[in-house]
Design a protein around this nucleic acid. Structure first.
Length: 722
DNA sequence: GCAGTAGCTTAGCGGCTTCC
DNA sequence: GGAAGCCGCTAAGCTACTGC
């Protein structure tokens, strides 16, 4: 009763035409209205100012559904309180009509339209969405509620609801999808100044995914709690859109963005980063399935199994006696090493000394090394040729040459410029001469490497994160037993847990192994909670002289690390040691990359082999950044990875095919340059070639195919061409 | 652009521990 | 006591960052 009362009341507040009133009452007629409802329904049409078509459909909606009192009430109420045009009102009610709404859903759906100040298109789409879906009560309710609580523009609302519309939601999914839009979109619209495109993507994201409650909620929540710019909002939602998120993954993804208080750039990056990680696809569910996760026994069994074959380069070097060295106490070598350490302040010089030692042993197979090699240019060339024939790459041979030249410069400075000094200088000049072709080869190799990356493709960030996804289930299991249930875990699990924590820093936060190795307890204790993330600054690493490594752990990750710090590290530590990550023997870990390798190896038995290193994931991330982010954002990412932007551009950002094609297309737009510009033009000198039109005629007369023969001169002349 | 150098990756070895 | 495995260390090759 009250429903029909409201329905007609809605129509009533408008200014109905004859047809609308007719339809309205017709609706009430085809339903089983009670007296009061019918009365009000028509009253609504009476008091409104609907046009013919709108009122007609509105009431038609009520008519074709099997409405209960409340639903019809709300539907028409919505139309009533808005100032709908013909089309909007038409669709709004049509939506309710094609669905089989229950009381509550219909109520809210129309209420949404009602409380907003919709334009024609927005209302049209909103209701159309609900219409083309097969919403359940709750879903329809929320979908429209979302539109209601927002202050949508035409396009945004259109897209929002279109998203819901183009999906094929089940009851729960549709419910949540729209709930997501409902609880979040409004915020995002409010806090940001979204353009049409951003709003479009935001909702499109939810639409193309099959989100569950938490995921959809968080996805949009992320955008909401940030202060996104247009681009960031666009990317944030695009990220969720392009992924095929599962509940947890999307939840986490968006939660990350949500709990932070990102600036424009950071929000953009954060969400994009989440987009390129693939921690949220259905595949992940498979990968983290217990059946795919190796047991401790399997890990133990396989961890020692190296998949790497013996290097043929080293075999060849060994076979050729190229690894033979002079005694380390040799006078020349000791002097050279002291020179490097003392005069040149090169502490890590052992490799250079060893390279020289091997060279001297080759030139002088026996006895204390001396300067006789200075006259052996033929043997010198043989040595370089032997290095090359053993399979050493040009870069390594260049390294040998550099070390030898430095050794010679040391010798030159340590002797009087007598006969030996002159010999040394000539030998240096000789080496520099034979170095030139090696340098050219090295340049070619660098170019070839880039070629391979373009042609064969590079691993993506998602590829590189496979080991994290694969191991997450086991990792969380250890964490729960250790930190939640307070159960003592095995030493193997402790070490494996540490590997995973290290891998998070390298693969998720794109840090170098040196940063992992250099992190200290002091730096951990001094972490700062900033905008929903824990910031840790690490100063002792490769580029520590110019960059402070900073990682921003999520709350979840911080809890993982605290688990390591609280339950594992104390059992490893031996005496005073400030290093955060300690080996099982209580000393500072020496190679994060080896630990990462061993973590990867633990999955070989499951057929999981991502073969990604920290360098590869950093390159993949920088390459993705290159194609997706603004210059400012790229600089921020480079800084996060402790690169200068110049270095990132030079060494990490690889050209991707799409970028190359886009560049070629861009060049086509140069003034005065078109893809057809190489064709003769009308202004070209007559007789030298054809005009464009003539050439076109020529092509028609003599069509080109793979097997055709060019026309003879006679044929050309007979056809009217010169 | 190049030279110098530190750092990263891979491979292999071997000490140590655990288990049978 | 021996086998198996864990894990740290080092060498060699290679990559990449810095400074000039």
């Amino acid at each position: 009763m009250t429903l029909l009362t409201a329905t007609t009341s809605a129509v009533a507040t408008s200014a109905p035409t004859d047809d609308s009133v007719t339809a309205t009452t017709s609706a009430v007629a085809t339903s089983a209205p009670t007296d009061d409802s019918a009365t009000l329904a028509t009253s609504a049409v009476a008091t409104s100012a609907p046009t013919d078509d709108s009122a007609t459909l509105a009431t038609s909606a009520v008519a074709t559904s099997a409405p209960t009192d409340d639903s019809v009430t709300a539907t028409t109420s919505a139309v009533a309180t808005s100032a709908p045009t013909d089309d909007s009102a038409t669709l709004a009610t049509s939506a309710v009509a094609t669905s089989a709404p229950t009381d509550d859903s219909a109520t809210l759906a129309t209420s949404a339209v009602a409380t907003s100040a919709p334009t024609d298109d927005s209302v049209t789409a909103t209701t159309s969405a609900v219409a083309t879906s097969a919403p359940t009560d709750d879903s329809a309710t929320l979908a429209t509620s979302a539109v209601a609580t927002s202050a949508p523009t035409d396009d945004s609302v259109t897209a929002t609801t279109s998203a819901v519309a183009t999906s094929a939601p089940t009851d729960d999914s549709a419910t949540l999808a729209t709930s997501a839009v409902a609880t979040l979109s409004p915020h995002s619209v409010a806090t940001s100044a979204p353009t049409d495109d951003s709003a479009t993507l935001a909702t499109s994201a939810v639409a193309t995914s099959a989100p569950t409650d938490d995921s959809a909620t968080l996805a949009t929540s992320a955008v909401a709690t940030s202060a996104p710019t247009d681009d960031s909002a666009t990317l944030a939602t695009s990220a969720v859109a392009t992924s095929a998120p599962t509940d947890d993954s999307v939840t986490a993804t968006t939660s990350a963005v949500a709990t932070s208080a990102p600036t424009d750039d950071s929000a953009t990056l954060a969400t994009s980063a989440v987009a390129c990680t693939a921690s949220s696809s259905p595949q992940e569910e498979e990968e983290t399935d217990s059946s795919e996760t190796p047991s401790s026994d399997e890990m133990t069994r396989d961890s020692s199994r190296r998949r790497y074959s013996t290097g043929t380069v080293r075999e060849a070097m060994q076979a050729g006696g190229m690894y033979e060295k002079c005694p380390p106490e040799s006078k020349l070598l000791v002097g050279f090493k002291n020179h490097l350490i003392g005069a040149l302040q090169v502490q890590n010089c052992q490799q250079a000394v060893d390279n020289v030692s091997r060279f001297l042993r080759y030139m002088q197979p026996e006895g204390e090394p001396n300067l006789e090699f200075l006259t052996k240019t033929t043997e010198t060339m043989d040595y370089m040729r032997a290095l090359n024939n053993s399979g050493l790459c040009a870069a390594t041979i260049l390294n040998y040459m550099k070390n030898i030249i430095r050794f010679l410069q040391y010798l030159k400075g340590s002797v009087d410029m007598n006969e030996d000094g002159i010999k040394i200088q000539k030998y240096i000049d000789y080496l520099k001469t034979i170095r030139k072709p090696v340098t050219r080869k090295h340049s070619g190799n660098v170019c070839s490497t880039r070629y391979d990356r373009i042609v064969e493709g590079m691993p993506t960030v998602r590829d590189c994160n496979l080991v994290l996804r694969s191991g997450k289930k086991r990792f969380l299991d250890i964490y729960n037993r250790m930190a939640i249930s307070k159960i003592v875990v095995s030493p193997t699990d402790k070490t494996w847990y540490r590997y995973y924590c290290e891998a998070v820093m390298m693969l998720r936060h794109f840090q170098r192994p040196g940063v992992v190795e250099g992190m200290t307890v002091t730096e951990w204790v001094n972490r700062k909670l900033t905008d929903g993330r824990y910031l840790i600054c690490i100063k002792n690493h490769k580029t520590g002289a110019t960059h402070v490594a900073t990682i921003a752990l999520t709350l979840e990750e911080e809890a993982w690390y605290q688990g390591y710090y609280e339950f594992i590290r104390p059992e490893f530590v031996r005496g005073e040691c400030d290093c955060f990550f300690l080996s099982a023997r209580g000393i500072q870990i020496t190679s994060g990359s080896i630990d990462l390798l061993r973590l990867r190896e633990s999955f070989f038995s499951c057929g999981i082999d991502d073969s990604c290193t920290s360098v590869q994931v950093r390159r993949a991330a920088e390459t993705l950044v290159e194609t997706s982010f603004t210059e400012t954002q790229k600089q921020n990412v480079a800084a996060y990875m402790c690169h200068s932007d110049h270095m990132a551009d030079k060494h990490y950002r690889m050209p991707v095919p799409s970028t190359l094609v886009a560049t070629a297309v861009l060049l086509d737009t140069l003034p005065g340059y078109t893809p057809d510009c190489y064709l003769p033009t009308e202004t070209d000198s007559p007789g030298s070639c054809m005009s464009g039109k003539e050439f076109s005629d020529f092509q028609q007369t003599f069509p080109v195919s793979r097997d055709c023969q060019p026309p003879t001169k006679k044929q050309r002349v007979e056809a009217g061409f010169s």
